[in-house]
């Protein structure tokens, strides 16, 4: 996996994880590391698009709330946070994790924060899938009596 794909993955994971889960895991981060803002956390909207007929051209469905920010660690690394919702702490922590993942602290962040988030997410998805599979219809054909 190249660096860009890796970064894409952790940023997506941080955005899709519940703000409370990110907060719980990142509590000490904000105290340990200091940074300066390049862009203060701000909430806005992103227009979500769909595809005509599921596969065709784009159309606008409606917006989703998104909070973003950018920061620079004291040692110079820049991190960006883009998360769904209006939680500024969530965006800040996502940006901080993004920055730290580009520093020697990456391994520690990976084990202490990203790995638990990934496991939580996988657990939730498996639970939903199992629940959905339990509602899968098994058809059976009645045997006709006349043949």
């Amino acid at each position: 996996m190249d660096d860009q794909t890796k970064r894409k993955n952790w940023m997506g994971l941080l955005a899709k994880s519940a703000p409370q889960a990110v907060k719980r895991l990142c509590e000490t981060l904000c105290e340990t590391y200091t940074f300066e803002w390049l862009r203060q956390p701000e909430t806005g909207g992103v227009m979500v698009r769909g595809r005509t007929g599921g596969t065709g051209s784009a159309f606008n469905m409606g917006e989703v709330t998104v909070t973003r920010c950018s920061l620079r660690l004291d040692e110079g690394t820049v991190g960006h946070g883009y998360v769904q919702g209006r939680d500024k702490t969530h965006a800040t922590q996502a940006a901080l994790v993004d920055a730290l993942m580009q520093t020697p602290a990456a391994d520690q962040i990976e084990t202490e924060i990203l790995q638990p988030l990934r496991e939580t997410r996988a657990r939730q998805q498996v639970a939903i899938q199992a629940r959905a599979n339990a509602t899968k219809v098994d058809f059976f054909t009645m045997v006709r009596g006349d043949d």
Partner: peptide, 23 residues
């Protein structure tokens, strides 16, 4: 409320064939 939000941009079209279906 929606009208008060700055627009950050537009998403790629959502890909419904990779949806995790609950129904």
């Amino acid at each position: 409320y929606r009208t008060t939000l700055p627009r950050f941009g537009a998403s790629h079209p959502v890909e419904t064939d990779s949806m995790q279906c609950q129904r």
